[in-house]
């Protein structure tokens, strides 16, 4: 064993002391809470999604004639296919939840402030990619609901000013939802988005390491603890817990498929997945142009929030406007989501 280690050490000339130091990076003691593990959780879920996603591609056929049949085949015939699909579906939903919780934590601890503005923007980009992942993945099932959700979802893109029409054409591969659309969504889902996400996660983590974890405002404690093994173990526990929960959830609630997609027959009640409920309710409350502009402003505002916060701080230094704005948006999102879920 020792000879093997030496063999590798000779061929990979890296100072091991540097690696050891990097692994034992000191973290502020406030990170010892379980909620602080939320940053690493989406990364772990992404790994679970990548592995289960690769397994699903072994049987999934991205053609309109066979997509539905292949999903049904995975769900009902492929050995353990229901489990893999169920974990993939569940992990995707959990990823959205954990990314949102992580963003809420970062927001309310103001960890986005100088010099970490760029990392907040990378985080927002990762959040948007996560939602795009969910949208493209849901479309691949090719049952009635997923087909019509794709049709309506992409219709909305057309209303985006300037780039709406070309973007719609790029996504659909034509003016309407057609066989090209499924191939393109599949390409995005298994190629473009994972590449973008991997690169952004690496950049996001690199910036966290370079700046160090943001200290809590008004926390006098200066003690630290090492990332490895203390924090790493905590993250592993969370990851294992999630995986166990997912497997057991799928065991009791295995995935199903709805009626196959029928392009000429619009179902009576089309609704997106729960994570788009706030947007859907917002669009129902306003006209399409107002809804789209509102959505664009929200995304731009979210991206530039660290700078907006700095301006608000300068205008009214002691008013804590960031708490008011953040809480208002948070409450509005929850209200819209519940409203759509209950009233529909």
């Amino acid at each position: 064993m020792r000879r093997l280690t030496r063999w590798f050490e000779e061929r990979i000339p890296v100072d091991h002391e540097v690696l050891r130091k990097a692994a034992r990076e000191p973290l502020p003691v406030h990170m010892k809470t379980w909620i602080s593990c939320l940053g690493g959780t989406p990364a772990m879920l992404f790994c679970i999604l990548a592995v289960t996603g690769i397994l699903l591609t072994f049987y999934y056929v991205p053609s309109p004639a066979q997509a539905y049949a292949s999903v049904s085949n995975i769900t009902f015939k492929v050995r353990m296919g229901w489990l893999i699909r169920g974990i993939h579906q569940g992990a995707a939903q959990l990823m959205i939840v954990t990314v949102l919780l992580h963003m809420i934590r970062v927001f309310f601890t103001r960890a986005y402030r100088k010099p970490r503005e760029l990392n907040w923007m990378l985080g927002v980009a990762l959040f948007l990619i996560t939602l795009t992942f969910a949208f493209t993945g849901y479309s691949l099932i090719y049952d009635q609901l997923s087909y019509w959700a794709t049709t309506i979802g992409t219709n909305m893109i057309a209303a985006v000013p300037l780039i709406g029409q070309p973007l719609l054409y790029l996504l659909r591969g034509g003016p309407d939802v057609n066989p090209n659309t499924l191939s393109r969504f599949y390409d995005f889902h298994i190629g473009v988005l994972p590449t973008m996400m991997t690169l952004l996660i690496v950049a996001h983590l690199a910036l966290v390491r370079l700046h160090g974890v943001a200290p809590l405002p008004e926390d006098p404690r200066r003690e630290t603890y090492p990332f490895f093994p203390d924090h790493m173990l905590r993250e592993t526990i969370v990851g294992l817990l999630l995986l166990i929960a997912l497997i057991n959830f799928v065991m009791f609630f295995p995935p199903t498929v709805g009626a196959p997609a029928t392009p000429g027959n619009t179902p009576g009640h089309i609704r997106p997945e729960w994570y788009f409920f706030p947007t859907y309710r917002w669009l129902k409350l306003t006209s399409l142009p107002v809804g789209i502009w509102g959505g664009i402003l929200f995304v731009v505002g979210l991206f530039l929030w660290p700078f907006i916060d700095a301006v608000l701080e300068r205008i009214a230094p002691r008013r804590n406007l960031w708490v008011i704005v953040g809480s208002a948006f948070f409450l509005m999102t929850i209200v819209f989501m519940l409203w759509e879920a209950i009233v529909g």
Binding site: M80, P229, R234, I237, I244, N248, M251
Partner: peptide
Amino acid sequence: TQKFLVGIMGLVLLGSIIATGYLD
């Protein structure tokens, strides 16, 4: 304690996988 928890959870995970295999 954390190492102990990781070990326990590893076993639970293994048990869950075996249970799903049996169910399948």
